[in-house]
Design a protein around this nucleic acid. Sequence first.
DNA 1: CTTGAATGATTCGAGCTAGAACTATCACAG
DNA 2: CTGTGATAGTTCTAGCTCGAATCATTCAAG
Lengths: 152, 152
Amino acid sequence: MADRPVEIQLDRDVCKLVHRFARTLDTHVRRVADELGLTPAQAVALRELSEPITARELAVRMSCEASNATFVLDRLEEQGLVERRPHPRDRRAKQIVLTATGERGRAAVVDRLSARSPLTSLDARQQETLRSLLGVLVEDGNGQPDARKTSS
Amino acid sequence: MADRPVEIQLDRDVCKLVHRFARTLDTHVRRVADELGLTPAQAVALRELSEPITARELAVRMSCEASNATFVLDRLEEQGLVERRPHPRDRRAKQIVLTATGERGRAAVVDRLSARSPLTSLDARQQETLRSLLGVLVEDGNGQPDARKTSS
DNA sequence: CTTGAATGATTCGAGCTAGAACTATCACAG
DNA sequence: CTGTGATAGTTCTAGCTCGAATCATTCAAG
């Protein structure tokens, strides 16, 4: 049952490469976060907080569970980088807003993350190919027929 | 200094897609592991233990730190899936060997992981493109010019 | 209004992970 | 042999993550 060598090998190769490159990206974030005295998850959260959003939306942007966003936000709030405000239209939700310090932190994170990106060994055309291939996979992988619109 | 839109956006998109698809793969492993009563890391370790190797080599194959391999191996050993034997040629190292139960577990893991792979929405040609692009990135990312010379 | 399903946020438990510090061993040069 | 540096494995700490359970609120009927 084990031998359909070529297809399976290709599949495994790709999975392994995706995993390894994801870890390369992770290491990049980790290094940047370290330089700024942040934890990696905090850096990612700041990057995604380009505007006031709910904790739920942050979780979506970080592609993690909501409980996780709560965890990271707790620490960001302790450090005075974000504020949790009541949402104007939905009393269940909270609006996450960057403080002045948070804004500075975010600027630094965004700046350093885009510098020395691990993607520079591919030219724009290759990156676009990559984007479109991954786009198919991600769409399919989450293949939930998306019954939701992102009307915030 | 925030606006070099196109290049940066492409870069970010690709990073985000890689991250999301890596999590799709992770979820796949998680589901399979769950079905077999294993933790995700255990399933991955079993998958990589296609032959007796050292803990170090396992860490490389799992692309994680050595300390991590130790952690996973502790639990696999507790559950009687692997054995740590003294390495025949190097007394520092240990050889990780699957038990009979471990072999069965590995077979089940390998079998189920290859079934319903998240890559099926790409045909072989696209997968090869993906492999070659990621290959460049991974090689480059790990490609720290190693200040070591072969002492030949 | 009342009911019930869906949603936003949180808490908690179990497990994963990197990185640093440490021990033992090896490889090599003197 | 002795010392030096590299390597294999382990331990420990701090932090990350999922998934399940919980609570309040919202929304859609009736």
